[in-house]
Design a protein around this nucleic acid. Structure first.
Length: 392
DNA sequence: TCTGGGGTCCTAGGACCC
DNA sequence: TCTGGGGTCCTAGGACCC
């Protein structure tokens, strides 16, 4: 049996946890850029009650926000990562959950050493209370025979007030739970699969779970088949968060439009620099760099263009300056004058753990000096705030 | 005026090899 | 006219997630 822990309205809960004066008020969290644009990323239940939705562009709902004195918080992703770290530690310190892993900034999976519902409910209640006492973040918990079913259970934990945030789904409750669940609410079934399901007359999660297995293999790919098996109580999804990330990205939608190559180059260099800081923080080196550019797709009156280019490095690195140079060179490949650019980004990929290079003496010495330089810069930025030392 | 920013995994198809 | 049969590796792009 697997435990799933999901934080409620996570970003909004983090803002309330760090500023108690927000308690009881409608709160939304939005990514706001310098032009005041942005979209709603998270809302507490008071904000949801006003009809606001995740994904609403802020400018479109400005009136509702103003008239109801909604607190609009600017997203602070560093804070959210820090709090999720605290939550992890809180759970680990309690020593009740086995194989505890983080799935996303606000979701976790684990196992409990019990198989009867009563005991499970008891332990989960302890865990939930401990999390809420130590982080002030409310959570919902699901317990079921697979990860996918545990997420279904969490869905019901949130749906029914009476469950008080905890839903234990034993194998005998599975059918009832899946019969009431629209198939597109299942983890792994998105818009495209939903369309396919409709053609097959599959409406509920139970319709899917009770399909003929051979038919499922014909109709769906590996991931679809895995979801089908998980819904039938056969665990086959693993969450491998042991190693390094396989890619690191930094991108931005500008509040304005840029057509000037030099301004874009400055942005792209900054992205590359920020990516390399993240890369060194996880003691990795990357083997490829990509840069992408796009115009504003919402402006149908303007000429559209988007493109990307990537470069395979001859030697893996995490050196800010080398990666900034590579990114700038790639920008030269994708940049076309006269377009109004709205978005740009840098992706580092092919990431491996850093290791000593077996090269000639001279190169080793230069590498070592560079490595120390990066290390010092990272330490200074950690101590005095990011951006204290920058590479240009 | 203003429309996010990250990630993962899988597949199809091309290049290349024998 | 007709034009092997396998492999492997790589990459771009799709689909999905939060």
């Amino acid at each position: 049996m697997f435990l799933h822990i999901d934080c409620n309205s996570y970003f909004a809960s983090c803002e309330i946890a760090t500023d108690p004066s927000l308690e009881g008020r409608p709160v939304v969290v939005a990514n706001v850029n310098e032009a005041g644009g942005g979209i709603v990323l998270a809302l507490n239940k008071e904000a949801k009650a006003l009809g606001l939705k995740r994904g609403n562009p802020v400018f479109q709902v400005k009136r509702v926000l103003d008239e109801n004195h909604v607190a609009v918080c600017r997203a602070d992703h560093k804070k959210y990562r820090r709090i999720s770290q605290q939550l992890m530690e809180a759970v680990r310190s309690q020593d009740l959950v086995l194989n505890f892993v983080q799935y996303s900034v606000d979701e976790f999976f684990g196992e409990l050493p019990v198989d009867d519902a009563q005991a499970a409910r008891h332990y989960i209640k302890l865990i939930k209370e401990h999390i809420e006492a130590s982080t002030h973040i409310p959570v919902s918990c699901g317990y079921a025979p697979t990860y996918t079913l545990a997420k279904v259970a969490t869905h019901y934990a949130k749906l029914y007030e009476g469950y008080k945030g905890i839903c234990v789904m034993m194998p005998e409750n599975r059918e009832v739970a899946l019969r009431k669940l629209p198939v597109n609410e299942v983890w792994g079934i998105g818009r495209q699969l939903r369309k396919r399901m409709m053609l097959l007359n599959v409406v509920t999660a139970w319709d899917f779970a009770s399909m003929d297995p051979n038919r499922v293999k014909q109709e769906f790919n590996t991931q679809g088949v895995n979801t089908y098996r998980e819904l039938n109580g056969q665990p086959c999804i693993t969450i491998d968060r042991g190693g390094l990330q396989s890619s690191i990205m930094q991108s931005r939608t500008f509040g304005f439009m840029i057509d000037d190559r030099e301004k874009l180059a400055a942005e792209v260099r900054k992205f590359a620099s920020d990516c390399s800081i993240k890369l060194r923080a996880q003691k990795g080196e990357c083997g490829s760099v990509s840069v992408f550019l796009a115009t504003n797709r919402h402006r149908t009156d303007l000429a559209q263009y988007h493109n990307s280019a990537s470069l395979k490095l001859t030697k893996r690195t995490s050196d800010s300056v080398a990666l900034m140079k590579a990114a700038e060179q790639l920008l030269g490949q994708v940049y076309k004058p006269f377009f109004q650019y709205k978005q740009a980004g840098v992706v580092l990929a092919d990431i491996r753990p850093e290791e000593g290079h077996q090269l000639d003496l001279f190169t080793v010495e230069v590498d070592e000096k560079r490595r120390k330089l990066m290390e010092v810069a990272d330490r200074i930025n950690e101590k005095f705030g990011s951006g204290t030392v920058e590479f240009k």
